[in-house]
């Protein structure tokens, strides 16, 4: 059923996902309906049970409506405000690249004269290069990705084992005064 939304699980435990719970309820009720409606025409029974299953989706959707109001949903990061201009630049670049491709294809199919092709292609390439430069200037993704990766690596492996005891090479903490292995003084 297209109306069945999959509820983002608010908790991290492995309990029954909401949609399975509601579907199960729906199927149970449908079974009950079939038992109650014995003797009726088969089409009636089928439609009734389908309706009851649909009703279970009402429950699910209601849960989905009320859920976010009462639980703490971890809000996913909102769109970066400054990111839009960047995205727009990227988009425009793809657009220009596509146009170049298209132009080359049209040229290969003999739809454009060489002079026009050179002129228009040159203009488009110019614009593409301009956009690429602009993208580079706004501290390109490369740098930002590199920073992000570095930060992520640093976060994943907290700063242990940066310093080691000069005599036995056992790593020691920032605030240690003596080595915990050989007792060498670490001050000075």
């Amino acid at each position: 059923m297209a109306s069945s939304p999959q509820v983002p699980e608010p908790t991290t435990d492995q309990s029954l996902p909401a949609w399975q719970f509601f579907l199960l309820c729906g199927m149970l009720s449908a079974t009950a309906v079939v038992v109650v409606a014995t003797g009726q025409h088969i089409a009636n029974v089928i439609i009734l049970s389908l309706t009851v299953i649909a009703a279970s989706f009402v429950g699910l959707a209601a849960y989905r409506t009320i859920g976010p109001l009462v639980t703490h949903v971890v809000a996913t990061a909102p769109v970066v405000a400054g990111g839009r201009t960047r995205a727009a630049l990227e988009r425009e670049k793809t657009l220009v690249l596509r146009s170049i491709k298209e132009l080359e294809f049209d040229y290969a199919m003999g739809k454009i004269s060489p002079a026009d092709f050179d002129e228009m292609g040159g203009r488009l390439r110019q614009r593409a290069v301009g956009l690429m430069q602009q993208l580079d200037h706004t501290a390109g993704y490369r740098d930002r990705i590199a920073e992000d990766v570095a930060a992520a690596v640093a976060a994943a492996r907290p700063a242990v084992a940066v310093k080691a005891c000069p005599s036995c090479a056992t790593p020691f903490d920032e605030d240690a005064r003596f080595c915990k292995q050989c007792g060498t003084s670490l001050k000075g």
Partner: peptide, 26 residues
């Protein structure tokens, strides 16, 4: 900019679909 309200609104939107399905069944 309240993501809870937005999420809840989307949920209600699905709820309309579910309710209309039941009404159609009826």
């Amino acid at each position: 900019r309240n993501s809870r309200l937005i999420e809840s609104g989307i949920g209600a939107f699905y709820l309309v679909a579910a309710l209309m399905t039941v009404a159609s069944g009826v």
